[in-house]
């Protein structure tokens, strides 16, 4: 009894100093920047004017394309140490060039994986009024069935039977069987590392190919399914389809 208490008293202040106050940690950090390039197949996505063709030969134009990226982290192989972005919520909006990249501070290391969620984690879906990327002003929040729209595409297609030939895919749902949150893990081309060094910025270029929304595993034909605006089976199918739309095309270590 006695010795153990003494031992505890000895190490306790050390424990407090190291973990008790995060801000006193002085490990070196550098900057990592993520840049998203939205495409349709390999062509840069253009809103409004360009006509695209999906795998079923249906043509369409895109007027809106936005998605949430959250809980971004860099990883090392097999080790628990990772660089985790704090307050990691981003709305990537093809209509707002400034939203296509963001950066954060990471601890110095050579990282080999990048991971994130497509969407907003379930905790934040039920935590009340949010701000910043999660502000309901961004038009990515369902008001009648509280929850974020994780990804959204709107456009037109002659194959759509809706008023004004509209097509509208609002993908969401965060709980139980309706969960569309998809965890993405990416590696870097050519077995490259992302080198984080003090005073430097490394950049990761990520391509997001909208063409993946239509197929694999589920066929989504405009003629049959021009609209999705609720959590449920269709939202989940499309989320499965788009969960492989991302790939890292380049890493630039400065």
């Amino acid at each position: 009894m006695k010795p153990s208490i003494k031992y505890f008293l000895l190490i306790y202040p050390a424990f407090l100093l190291s973990g008790g106050c995060q801000k006193s940690i002085t490990s070196q950090t550098g900057t990592v920047r993520l840049t998203f390039r939205n495409t349709v197949k390999t062509n840069p996505m253009v809103l409004g004017t360009t006509s695209y063709t999906n795998p079923f030969g249906e043509t369409y134009k895109i007027t809106k394309f936005k998605y949430y990226i959250s809980n971004v982290r860099l990883g090392l192989s097999g080790l628990p140490t990772t660089a985790i972005e704090k307050e990691s919520y981003h709305l990537v909006d093809q209509g707002l060039p400034g939203s296509l990249s963001f950066s954060f501070e990471a601890v110095e290391n050579s990282f080999i994986t990048l991971s994130f969620l497509i969407g907003v984690d379930s905790t934040r879906n039920v935590s009340g009024a949010q701000t910043g990327a999660l502000d309901p002003l961004n038009d990515m929040f369902w008001t009648w069935n509280s929850g974020y729209i994780m990804a959204k595409m709107e456009g037109t297609s002659p194959q759509s039977n809706q008023v004004g030939n509209k097509i509208e895919y609002h993908i969401g749902g965060f709980s139980g069987a309706n969960n569309v949150l998809r965890q993405i893990g990416l590696t870097f081309p050519g077995s490259k590392f992302v080198e984080i060094r003090k005073g430097k910025t490394s950049e990761i270029i990520i391509e997001a190919d909208f063409d993946k929304w239509w197929q694999t595993p589920a066929d989504v034909k405009i003629a049959d399914l021009p609209v999705c605006t609720t959590p449920g089976v269709l939202s989940k199918k499309i989320a499965d389809n788009y969960s492989d739309m991302f790939k890292v095309t380049d890493v630039v270590n400065n």
Binding site: G128, A129, P136, F141, T143, S146, G147
Partner: peptide
């Protein structure tokens, strides 16, 4: 029960 939190 569609609303999950008083604030929203």
């Amino acid at each position: 029960g569609g609303i999950s939190h008083i604030e929203v």
